[in-house]
Design a protein around this nucleic acid. Structure first.
Lengths: 204, 204
DNA sequence: TAAAGATACGGACCAGTGGTCCGCTTTGCA
DNA sequence: TGCAAAGCGGACCACTGGTCCGTATCTTTA
């Protein structure tokens, strides 16, 4: 079944909506100040179009987030070390969390909006499931972790440390510099994985 | 200045509102199904009364949460070990987190509602500040942690591991038993603090 | 190129929320 | 018992996410 190509105006509008929403989120205000009507207006589009294209607010946010996340996802799935598959597990865990942190820092407002969107906890989202699954499986490759039954919870706990609202609090409000935060997280991971307090920040 | 005692009907209503809201949250549904009008109706009270007494939704939630948290707060501040002040730091950190976890499990819906309430991130709330401050100061009593500059971030990361929505996901959706979760958290803390994977659950 | 059928548009509209307001009741004090 | 003042409560408001359907646009076919 050849999936029917979208009409040209449809893709144009979809693009416009993405750009507008992205701009509105990036421009700083609180996530709930970015309203559906506002996005529609900024994109020069009717509200109906928004809802037909994305279903609901959460759908729009997911789509945007997914698009932003795409490069990182690819780097993780089929890229070179330290993010890609061919990396020793200890190093990869650290790289993954560092990447997640950087992403959250750079897309704080969007991530924040997504996490507090629509009732369903962020833990139900596909992207969370996949990050957690990956992190868990990498943790299980560490010596002594394989059958311990702790990998899953540890993965949750590590991801919790880079939650968007915590990041926003630390970076946005407390003014912790990005590199400082990366160093802290790196040390945290190191301490957790092998008890040694290696405080070097993860490399780029 | 003798603070003017509230009128009798005022305190009666305040009490009724507390009880009603508490019941509605406890009875299970999603936090946003518990509406201000609903609480007012359940308490046999007008909406205006709610807003005058608590300011806004967030205020009501904070008040309820505070009341629920009171016994635990007291146990932590002036109680006997392992929660109270006279406890060795390693043990106390574990006890604090265990207590926080249990509290969140028992009051999931209320905690969830509070955390996602009203725009302001949960990290702005007083009770979060105080828990974080305490945890941080206890961490700093551990050998090697005093001037490391890692205590604050570690405290944030540990508290993130007992976030209400994570707890809700694990206990409420994935069906992880309470004791299992406590054991996981205990192991997590132990691993973080001294690298040893001590998997015994914290005692009551 | 013209006409028709399908697809998408978009703004008026709806339901439900948090929050406000003000005439009326209750309370506490003299 | 009288009388301020404090408190009450439901009608009301602003605003949100979400729906609907007549209309404009696009694509295809002759």
């Amino acid at each position: 079944m050849p999936e029917p190509r979208s009409r040209r105006d449809a893709v144009r509008n979809r693009e416009a909506v993405f750009a507008a929403a992205d701009a509105l989120f990036a421009e700083g205000g609180s996530p709930e100040d970015v309203t559906m009507a506002g996005i529609a207006a900024a994109a020069g589009v009717g509200k109906g179009t928004l809802f037909r294209a994305f279903g609901d607010r959460a759908g729009l946010l997911r789509a945007l987030y997914g698009a932003r996340l795409e490069p990182l996802r690819e780097a993780v799935e089929t890229g070179p070390p330290p993010l890609g598959p061919g990396t020793p597990p200890r190093e990869r865990v650290r790289a993954l969390l560092d990447a997640a942190l950087c992403f959250k820092v750079d897309n704080r407002h969007l991530a924040l909006a997504l996490e507090e969107s629509g009732g369903a906890s962020p833990y139900a989202a596909d992207h969370y499931r996949s990050w957690h699954g990956l992190l868990k499986s990498v943790l299980e490759q560490l010596p002594g972790w394989a059958g311990s039954g702790h990998a899953s919870f540890t993965a949750h706990a590590l991801l919790a440390a880079v939650r968007a609202d915590l990041v926003e609090r630390l970076v946005g409000e407390d003014g912790v510099p990005r590199e400082e935060l990366r160093a802290q997280l790196g040390a945290h991971v190191a301490r957790l994985l092998d008890g040694a307090a290696d405080t070097r920040p993860a490399h780029d």
